[in-house]
Nucleic acid binder design. Structure first.
Lengths: 148, 148
DNA sequence: GGACAATTATTTGCATACAAATGAATTTGG
DNA sequence: CCAAATTCATTTGTATGCAAATAATTGTCC
């Protein structure tokens, strides 16, 4: 069947505009953030950086707990930790107190990478929010945190 | 080397708080939206729905152009269109005017699915934003659109 | 103490995302 | 008009993201 020219959908009054939906807007803003992040961190993804930064501030943490802290489910945090470990930024060891657990920690290289990254990550945030005034930035963060 | 208990990073004054960074917050809000969306649309992902909705409002569109309209790159829109096509919601045909192009259009089933979906998608937006007042919702959308 | 529930980590499968490379077709500029 | 640049679609490879199933371990509670 050939494709016919579209007929105006007169019967269905569609107020719905995809471009105004919060989910669609969130995805586009996230895409822009991802691009800014990638330019600033050529060798780390945002979830990888989040994992490094959280390990730095929390210290050695079990893998699943670490995942909860950085909002990555068990399957995803495993992959992230595996890749960070393969690059020598993290190390793992069994938890002596709980045989189910794997404790993840930064290596010295991981600590240094985190410390190098902090100002860069700040710059990523600033660049992402550059179109907004200081008040608007605070407002946006506050509104988004209400939706977490 | 065994994992040592963390030492407080006194040397590095870290104002940086991952949980306050816009990228991290965006990811968490997107995750919540994804969960709400999945509960409302058990058989469609958000990008699939976006594609259906945009096809409904724009009519037959070349695949890459469609991707631009829904913010999916050429590789990603191809997969989405393939899966929608496999389910009979879209159909494709070569563009007679340009042999490079593939024109994507809704099938009758796709049109019906879109029309069924509009009110559901509205409800997803409402539920995602439920924690905010009407003014705050408008404010949030306005701020996010400034960052697109 | 022991059955049962819950937690932890792993694995598989599917669906975005995006970079990069490719080949075919079209557009552009001189 | 024609060589170069651009566009379009596809393919490959890597990295999330999430559901579901599994095995091992630990916690609960009667």
């Amino acid at each position: 069947m050939a494709i016919q020219p579209r007929q105006k959908p007169e019967t269905v009054s569609t107020q719905y505009a995809l471009d105004d939906q919060i989910g669609f807007i969130l995805r586009k803003v996230s895409q822009r953030h991802t691009a800014i992040f990638a330019a600033a961190f050529p060798d780390l993804t945002a979830p990888q950086w989040a994992t490094l930064a959280k390990l730095y501030e929390s210290g050695p943490t079990s893998q699943n707990q670490l995942g909860r802290l950085v909002a990555l489910d068990a399957a995803t945090i495993k992959g992230v930790v595996d890749r960070l470990g393969a690059r020598g930024l993290t190390m793992t060891a069994p938890d002596p107190a709980d045989a189910r657990r794997v404790v993840v920690a930064l290596t010295e290289a991981g600590r240094k990478e985190a410390e190098r990254g902090f100002p860069v990550a700040e710059a990523v945030t600033v660049e992402t929010l550059a179109a907004l005034s200081v008040e608007e930035r605070a407002q946006l963060v506050q509104l988004l945190k209400a939706l977490e």
